[in-house]
Structures are given as structure tokens and as C-alpha cells.
């Protein structure tokens, strides 16, 4: 068994856009319902945690608790949107709806389908950031100076979680088993990535672990810095980390999926 086969560079074809369009069309059929969570969730979180819980919390690094968690809410939503789209969503389309089978009976090939799914997942993340950023800004919790940069960054971060999710989708024996990565990977990340309290309060080894292995820490750092209205050179290391991880998981997810679906 050679590991090289999991790292073959996949072909990328513009036809992946057709798969993206298919998912967009379905999304638009329920557009109001789909826009509700990213609109409502930050409001609820900010009310409960930012202003409710925040009343008992002193400032963190010179900002109010609400201001501290507001960017993290966007980061978490970026993670959730694409991860769940490319795990449960893709699995349902692949296994139950046989959508992939139908598509590959046309000039599209499986690489196009998976790439379309991944970019659609990233788009879901971007849409969430697009809705949430103004809502949070309306609470006065975002400095607008670099806020626009959050949107394209959400696409990159979303793509990373789409690719990671797709790897699990390729490996899971059934849909129930997707609960494991959701529970053991996504939920801890939701809590321990500098989202609701600064990473610095954790023991140092855990901090290093988080920075090395928890993608959300980097996404939180970038979005938080941008939301505070600054653009630091140190963000470059986070962006490079995310880029490299995205490339690796993109290639890996593609090869895992090909191995699963081409029999």
C-alpha cells in the first residue's frame, strides 16, 4: 500500500462550476430559511454570552467580552457551515440521493463533482460571514476599517473545513459515524481555539498543540485582528498555515473520494 496514491495532484476543470451551480440552485429554493441562522445566531449569542455572561467578565486584552467573542462567532460559523455542508450534506447527496452518480453520467467526472462540493462548502461559509459581519457591526462590535477582508478570508477558511469534512465523508462507513468527527474534532475546536476565552490562559503545551493542529485557532486570530481594525504582519503566518493545510486536505480529500467512488 503506497501513500503516494493519496497525494496525486487532481485535475481541475471549469466544469466544477456546474456542480457548484446545482447546489446554489437548491440553496436558493429555500433562501430565506437558509439566511436565517447566520442572521439570528450572532444576535442570540451576543445577547446571551456577550452582554449576559459578559456582565461578569472584565475586559479581555482591553476590549469588552462581547467585542472579544464577536469575531469568534464569525470564525465558528465559517467552520460549521462548510464542515457540515461537506460531511452530512455531501454524504446525503452522494449516498442517499445518488446525485454524484447522476452527475458523472454526463461529461463531468468525479473530480469535478468533489471540487464543486468543496467550493460550494466554502461558499456557504462566505455567505455566513457576509450576513454575520454587518449584523455584528450593527452592535458596534466590529471596526469597519478592514472588515471587508473578512469575507474573502471566510472563503479560504471555509474551503479548509470543506476539505477536512470531505476527508471524513470519504472515510466514514455510514452517516451516523460522522458524529465522531463532529463531536471529537469540531466541538473541542469550538471551545478551545481562543473563541470564548484567550488561548493564553491554557497551559503552554496545549497552546502549541492548538496552534499546530486546530485550524480554527488560526481562523479566529485572523478574523479577530481584522475585526479590531488592524492588519498585522503576524497574520501572514496564520494565512500561510491555512493555505498549506487547505492544499494538503484538498488533495487528500480528492484522492480519498476517488478511491471510494471509482470502483
Amino acid at each position: 500500500m503506497s501513500y503516494i496514491q493519496y497525494f496525486q495532484i487532481p485535475e481541475m476543470n471549469r466544469r466544477l462550476l456546474k456542480v457548484w451551480l446545482r447546489n446554489k440552485d437548491v440553496f436558493m429554493k429555500n433562501v430565506k430559511l437558509n439566511f436565517l441562522p447566520p442572521f439570528l445566531e450572532p444576535i442570540l449569542y451576543l445577547l446571551a454570552m456577550g452582554f449576559g455572561l459578559g456582565a461578569f467578565v472584565d475586559e479581555i486584552n482591553g476590549v469588552s467580552y462581547a467585542q472579544f467573542i464577536a469575531p469568534a462567532l464569525i470564525a465558528v460559523s465559517v467552520m460549521y457551515a462548510s464542515f457540515f455542508e461537506c460531511t452530512y450534506g455531501s454524504y446525503v447527496r452522494m449516498y442517499y440521493q445518488k446525485t454524484f452518480d447522476a452527475i458523472i453520467a454526463t461529461p463531468l467526472i468525479i473530480e469535478d463533482v468533489i471540487a464543486g462540493e468543496l467550493f460550494w462548502g466554502a461558499t456557504r461559509s462566505t455567505i455566513n460571514a457576509l450576513v454575520m459581519t454587518p449584523v455584528i457591526a450593527a452592535f458596534g462590535l466590529i471596526d469597519l476599517k478592514y472588515a471587508l477582508l473578512i469575507i474573502p478570508f471566510a472563503f479560504l477558511g471555509g474551503l479548509l473545513f470543506a476539505c477536512i469534512g470531505m476527508c471524513f465523508t470519504a472515510m466514514t462507513p455510514n452517516i451516523m459515524a460522522l458524529n465522531y468527527p463532529a463531536l471529537l474534532f469540531i466541538t473541542p475546536m469550538f471551545l478551545f481555539s481562543g473563541t470564548f476565552f484567550p488561548l493564553e490562559v491554557l497551559p503552554e503545551p496545549i497552546q502549541y498543540f492548538a496552534l499546530a493542529f486546530l485550524p480554527l485557532t488560526h481562523i479566529v486570530r485572523v478574523i479577530r485582528t481584522l475585526a479590531y481594525g488592524s492588519l498585522e504582519l503576524s497574520l501572514l503566518s496564520d494565512v500561510i498555515w491555512i493555505l498549506l493545510a487547505t492544499i494538503i486536505f484538498y488533495i487528500l480529500s480528492m484522492n480519498l473520494m476517488k478511491k471510494k467512488l471509482i470502483v
Binding site: R15, D25, D101, A102, A105, T106
Partner: peptide, 29 residues
Amino acid sequence: KKYMGVVPQENNLDPDFTVYENLRNYSRY
């Protein structure tokens, strides 16, 4: 595949779409 039509053993129509939308979406491929 461009010049081929396929009726698979198991139906795989898109349940997210209407009859028309199924065909319309497929024509894009």
C-alpha cells in the same frame, strides 16, 4: 459521455428539484 444517454438501474433523480428543474439542471452538465 457527451454523446451518451444513461438510464441507470436505480433511479437517481434529484429530490431537491422539480421535474423541470431536474432536466434544466442536467442540461447544464
